[in-house]
Design a protein around this nucleic acid. Structure first.
Lengths: 327, 327
DNA sequence: CTGAAAGCGCTTACAG
DNA sequence: CTGAAAGCGCTTACAG
């Protein structure tokens, strides 16, 4: 039945008929119990700076699916790198390759460094799934995450909607921002919204904040807010709570703020009405799905979709409590 | 090990220790393969008026979970009733009771009639799960659906946000609206938003449309729009496409519209910018979860959460394409 | 009460 | 090449 050697075509047909007639459905429990397959996967994700950091969330999803798949003999070896240090990323990719896993889930955080990693993965025929940000046509099995450009567009629309007048400051809290593709895309989408407006009534400015160890960055941003008549701020990643802190500390009022992701601190600023909208992307689900796609392809030999865009959730003070991590 | 008769306390302890030591995890495949349990569930949901109707969606989720659970021996008997006829609901409840299923998923659409059904279910000790709308403390195993009051509040906020001036019309496309609790709750939440505003600048009106067979209702609503200076419309259920039709037909401009649920027609009006926001609730997920909760409780004897609120998704032209039915 | 055997529906190594 | 047997890790009816 399952392609064992040569069978006469007529017999094949007969068997298929019987299968159809009886509506035969193989019992997956008996099947997996008897087969005893196994697989080793690796994950390579950013190390969250704290237990409240964004990257804990995808990893929660990863662990959850791995736990479920233990029964199938699937194992995982997690690796993490430092978000502010592209060299640590390279070091870890080498460890991954040395392990020779049967599949890899990773965030192509640093574009340049990711490309050489991908080349090696392809050479070794190790299937891989992108999570969080993507590189087009790199031979990936699948991408799991937001459409960053479109999410930028949504942010633009919403900030425009709540901003009667004044200018807008886009803040990237990141090092090597140009090497981080999804931040670039979010900014692009955001600009696009205002570019296509017929009667532009806001001017846009962009700034990068690389270091938040001390409060120096606040001085600079404050300066910009005042000199450029900033009334709206868009933060391109999950670090919008820094802007919340700035607003609280310096006592600004009437500044509208949009950021990303449901971190605990971000949620607090949402509830305090200092941040008006958070754009969210179900990170636990992403981690869960990334492992699941790998499993379905590698172990179950199924074909899977190349792009798996997560929803672009618009979260406000009023609906935030209904976005929980898994059910 | 699994509570078979009397075992000495000391032996029990020893066994538990060994279990812990080996980190023993029972193999669910072997377990379900050997046990051969089975269960029969019933669902009682509204009959969708067309293949595009809302109630197809929860049922897609129901069928999906049932298909997965076939392996566990779970079977389902679906019943449907006519949304505009509470008597058909009563008729079907009788059929359900006659079947004596081991669990029921149903939408307590008509409050009064549901209460007597619930009484019988409780008497027969048949566990049941509410979907879509809920009745408090009725002995349900769980509720799966939105927090309708809160979702009304979100609608209020959004319509307020995009409405510089003018009045608001709330339309219920429903018969026996007072008997449909979640519509009442949505309206309540919606009003609440405007009630707590410090400087009210919109007046609210409510109307019910019971019959959409012909276009008579349009005449009446048109009259209201003009005489009461209506600039915003909120439709409390998935029938907002009717308002889209009205606006297209009568050529109104500058009316802002908010409604519910991602029906195909609603989506079209969203894309045409005739409807500005749709509040959504992941209906397929709800159907899937409802069956799953029943399964977990009845077959797996697990304890499950009493309230399972779905997220209140804010859907616009820009993010609509990323809300797909299941992944 | 309790130990040991049969069987759940498959897969796979093996003998013929 | 192909049929029949062993075994996956459990549950449960049964004998003692």
């Amino acid at each position: 039945m399952h392609n064992r050697g040569e069978v006469a075509e007529s017999t094949k047909r007969k068997i298929r008929e019987i299968i159809k007639e009886l509506d035969y459905q193989p019992n997956i429990f008996a099947s997996t119990l008897a087969s005893k397959k196994s697989a080793l996967f690796a994950t390579l994700l950013p190390q969250p700076p704290s237990v409240e950091g964004y990257w804990n969330k995808p990893f929660i999803g990863v662990k959850r699916r791995i736990l479920e798949l233990k029964q199938y003999g699937v194992q995982i070896q997690p690796f993490t790198f430092n978000q502010t240090d592209s060299k640590s990323f390279v070091t870890e990719t080498k460890k991954v390759l040395k392990l020779k896993p049967e599949g890899v889930v990773f965030a192509p955080f640093f574009k340049k460094e990711s490309i050489s990693f991908i080349q090696e993965l392809n050479e070794n025929k190790i299937p891989f799934v992108f999570i969080d940000s993507e590189i087009n046509d790199a031979g990936q099995l699948s991408y799991i995450g937001q459409d960053s450009y479109q999410s930028g567009l949504v942010s633009g629309k919403l900030l425009d909607l709540i901003l009667p007048e004044g200018n807008i400051l886009i803040i990237h809290f990141a090092k090597e921002m140009d090497n981080q593709n999804h931040l670039v895309q979010r900014e692009k989408g955001f600009y696009e919204w205002f570019d296509k407006k017929e009667e532009p009534n806001h001017q846009l400015f962009t700034t990068e904040v690389e270091n938040t160890q001390n409060d120096e960055w606040m001085v600079k941003v404050r300066e910009k807010i005042i000199s450029q008549n900033i009334k709206g701020i868009f933060v391109t990643n999950s670090k919008v709570f820094f802007v919340g802190k700035l607003i609280e500390k310096l006592g600004f009022s009437n500044i509208r703020v949009i950021g990303h992701d449901l971190l605990k601190e971000n949620k607090e600023y949402l509830k305090k009405d200092i941040v008006q909208f958070l754009i969210c992307q179900r990170p636990e689900e992403q981690g869960y799905n990334a492992i699941n796609k790998l499993f379905k392809n590698v172990v179950q030999k199924r074909v899977i979709a190349k792009k798996n865009y997560t929803s672009i959730d618009i979260v406000t003070k009023e609906n935030v409590d209904y976005y929980k991590e898994f059910k």
